[in-house]
Design a protein around this nucleic acid. Sequence first.
DNA 1: TTGAAAGCGCTACCAT
DNA 2: ATGGTAGCGCTTTCAA
Lengths: 332, 332
Amino acid sequence: MKVSIKEVAKLAGCSTATVSNVINNRNKFVSESVRKKVLDAMGALNYKPNNFAQTLRKGRSNIVGFVVPDLMNYFFTELASAIQSVLTENGLQLIVMNSEYSLDKEKQYIRQSVDQYASGIIIASLAEKYSHLEDCLSDDFPAVFIDRNPLGCKKDCITINNFQAAYEATQTLIRKGHQKIGIINGTLNISTSKERLAGYVAALEEAGIALDDRLIKHRSKDRTGHEGQRLIEELLEAGITAVFIVNNQTTIKVMQYLIDRQIEIPGQIAVIGFDDYEWSSITKPSLSVIRQPTFEMGVKAAEILLKRINSPSADFQEHYVLPSKLIQRSSI
Amino acid sequence: MKVSIKEVAKLAGCSTATVSNVINNRNKFVSESVRKKVLDAMGALNYKPNNFAQTLRKGRSNIVGFVVPDLMNYFFTELASAIQSVLTENGLQLIVMNSEYSLDKEKQYIRQSVDQYASGIIIASLAEKYSHLEDCLSDDFPAVFIDRNPLGCKKDCITINNFQAAYEATQTLIRKGHQKIGIINGTLNISTSKERLAGYVAALEEAGIALDDRLIKHRSKDRTGHEGQRLIEELLEAGITAVFIVNNQTTIKVMQYLIDRQIEIPGQIAVIGFDDYEWSSITKPSLSVIRQPTFEMGVKAAEILLKRINSPSADFQEHYVLPSKLIQRSSI
DNA sequence: TTGAAAGCGCTACCAT
DNA sequence: ATGGTAGCGCTTTCAA
């Protein structure tokens, strides 16, 4: 970048202050005729404002951070893609940061974003409680939580109705005649998993089926899903006839396990997975899944963040709950 | 960010110039004792240099751009993830930009990166010829091309051996007894597709099988892969017994088409797809694919870029060709 | 080895 | 409505 506001001012025959006013659409301070001259000069010189100078001066950049626990999980990359598309349209840039399931890294990235004048931040958080993050996130910093809603969260938040999703999946399996239904859940310290477990329990209780602890499994913080194979093994030993898996990576691992051992699906064991992808319909057998509106979640999160950025003092706090949906295919 | 170099200088009892020298490891200008005082002061105040001020002054940021044509394609998100992990370790930040299969957008993003003092850029380009980009990319700006290598490219470049990949896939199908082998290729104006077509042709020629234009299909710039269904239909009408598909999204669409119509795989038609994912082994039947070392490609691209950034005047230009591999499963 | 000071490009305050 | 100018936080001469 070589052409600066000075050259524009000179060509337009006005001061740099006026050029700055034009750039920032402070139109009431600029007469229409001067405004036009400035615009022409900017065009002629192919002038682009220097982001770094603007940021340094204004104390706010055009960058938004997105902190995710796992960039190998398509769920998060799809969120990132959706967020990115909305932000780009609004002149903002997205930097994705991978916390790799470490709360410390998450906090470090949040601090980095705040320190570096980010306009805002979107967080798929590992924190069980909002208080864990309170020291790096002031009350008036624009932030939106997505997918997981830490306990006592003071920020806007986008989730799906996880209770309903798990309830529907479990109820459907019960109606198909299953009594011994296993669940492979996420780690219990995030809201998502708690709600899903609650939905599973509620459906069983409603049907008068006694809870069996041996049928309830939780992943630890496991990025590749390998753990799923050990968990499904334990569930099979416990005699399940159906399983609900709340994570797409684990679902694949479980399917691999079952197919390798030539266990009939859904004959010997019915499977409901999580997240609907293009490939979900070409598996053997095609997968029944809870479809969450991933892209829409990202879009919504970005939109809320924009709203928040534009009125940072506004006194609203919102928790949007988007609907999920059971897609029935041949695995149940 | 509130604590600046001034506070550090005051606490350490030296000038801001000296602090700056410490920050930038210009150790020969700073005595060990002063250096230690400065470091202590920085620690005590929890000082972090302001990126924007540094950038404004130095004329170079710590940001790297990555331009991709499609953020819905896992291939590119995996590349992004790999690049990001290497850059983060080296104190750089990645901004991913989605050109959405538009060369104009690609050029606009390249210009934006250059204008905004990016340290460098990695491009999965749509350009057929490097000359299309020459006006936005000066010879000394650090840039690495990935996956596709525009004709006459003056920059470093990472690809796989696309010729070999297609040759191996086609040869394998021939050895299984197939004579009428279709190919669903990408758009012919990118290097990747040209090389893959050449590999396909070479294998057929070597086996003495006459080329048949009706068996060679190209996608247009189609992001979702829907076009694949029309193309496989045409190929089936042309009487193929096997098909090689060079794109993961199209492969899924073709499989959906075949499964829906209960066409036996590999009995009626054998399939080799592209890109190996976790789910490739749980499809019906499990997919034979060309596996490309996607993550390694991203890592290598980032490493080359770092090398280039650190010695911008260096007189090397490299084209790294990584190996791909045919993974045989049940679809052939 | 250290420091004073100019200035990167921009915005915002204050004058006019 | 317009312009002069200080200063955001930093790096980099240049002088000491």
